[in-house]
Simulated assay, not measured.
Amino acid sequence: MSGIAIAAGRSGMVLAGQGDWTVLKPMLFQSIAQTLEMVFITLIVGGAFGLVLGVILYGTRPGNLFENAAVYRVLDIVVNIVRPIPFIIFLAAMQPLTIKVVGTSIGTMAAVFPMVVMCTFATSRLVEQNLVPVDSGVIEAARSMGASKITIIRTVLIPEALAPLILAYAFLFIAVLDMSAMAGYIGGGGLGNFAIAYGYQKFDPTVTWTAVVIMIVLVQVVQGIANAFAKRLLKRQRS
C-alpha cells in the first residue's frame, strides 16, 4: 500500500512537472523573443551611436583628423563616468529620464532605453581603442591625395579596423545580453526574468539552467560568426 502511495506520489510529481512545462514552454519562447528584441534593438541603435561617438573620440585625440583637446577631454570624462556604473544601478538612475522619453518605467522598451544609452558609451570606447592602432601612414597617404576627413573615415579608417571592430561588437553582444538579463527588475521580461521568476524563486534548477544554456548557445553562435568574418577580412587584408 505504501508502495502504491510512493508510486502515486512519483507519478504526481512527473505529471506536475509535465504540466509545468506545458505552461513554461510558451513562456520560454516569449522570453527568448523578448531577449532578442532587447539585444538587437540595443546593438543596432546603441552600436550606431557608439560608432559615431567612438570616431569622434578617436578623431579629436591630439594629432588626429580633427584634433580638439577640449572636446576630447569632455567626452573622455563623460564616458569614463558612465561606463563603470553597474547596470542595475544605472537602470534606477535613468528611471526619471526613461519615463520622459518612453512614457513608462516598466516593460521591454523601458529597459531598452537605458540599455541603448549604456551601450552607446561602452561601444564608443571599444571603437576608439580599435581605431587607435590603425597605421597613421595610411591616413596620411589618403590626406596627401586630397581625401576629405569624412572620406578618410569611411574608406580608410573604418575598413582598416573592421576585423577588430567586428570582434569588439561580438564582445559587446555578450555585455548587452548580460544587461538584458537584468531587465526583469523593471518588468522587461527576457531570459533573465524567466530564470529568476520561474527557476530561482520557485527552486527549479531545470528552468534556470535551461535559460543559462540558451544564453550560452546565443553567445557561441554570435562569437563563431564574428570570428569567421574577422578571419576572412584579415586574410583579405594580408593578401
Rank of each mutant, 00 (worst) to 15 (best):
174 I>F: 08
60 T>M: 02
107 G>E: 04
127 V>N: 01
169 Y>L: 07
204 D>Y: 10
226 A>I: 10
231 K>W: 07
90 F>W: 09
139 I>F: 08
140 E>C: 03
5 A>E: 14
46 G>D: 11
34 Q>K: 13
143 R>Y: 01
142 A>D: 07
193 N>F: 02
151 T>K: 14
103 G>H: 06
217 V>I: 15
152 I>Q: 10
141 A>R: 04
105 S>D: 13
112 V>C: 05
62 P>D: 11
73 R>E: 12
122 A>T: 12
194 F>L: 08
109 M>P: 00
172 L>M: 14
157 L>D: 06
153 I>S: 01
71 V>I: 15
103 G>A: 08
117 V>Y: 07
128 E>A: 04
218 L>D: 02
125 R>G: 01
3 G>C: 03
161 A>P: 02
218 L>E: 06
41 I>A: 09
14 V>Y: 14
85 I>G: 00
68 N>V: 01
55 V>D: 02
47 G>S: 09
230 A>C: 06
181 A>V: 07
110 A>L: 12
177 L>Y: 06
144 S>K: 09
180 S>E: 00
88 I>W: 06
4 I>S: 02
126 L>M: 13
225 I>C: 13
122 A>S: 13
33 A>C: 05
69 A>Q: 14
145 M>F: 09
128 E>S: 05
185 Y>N: 10
186 I>P: 04
69 A>H: 12
43 L>Y: 09
125 R>C: 03
202 K>T: 12
97 L>D: 07
100 K>P: 00
147 A>R: 06
36 L>G: 03
188 G>E: 04
101 V>K: 02
61 R>D: 11
227 N>K: 12
25 K>F: 15
116 V>S: 03
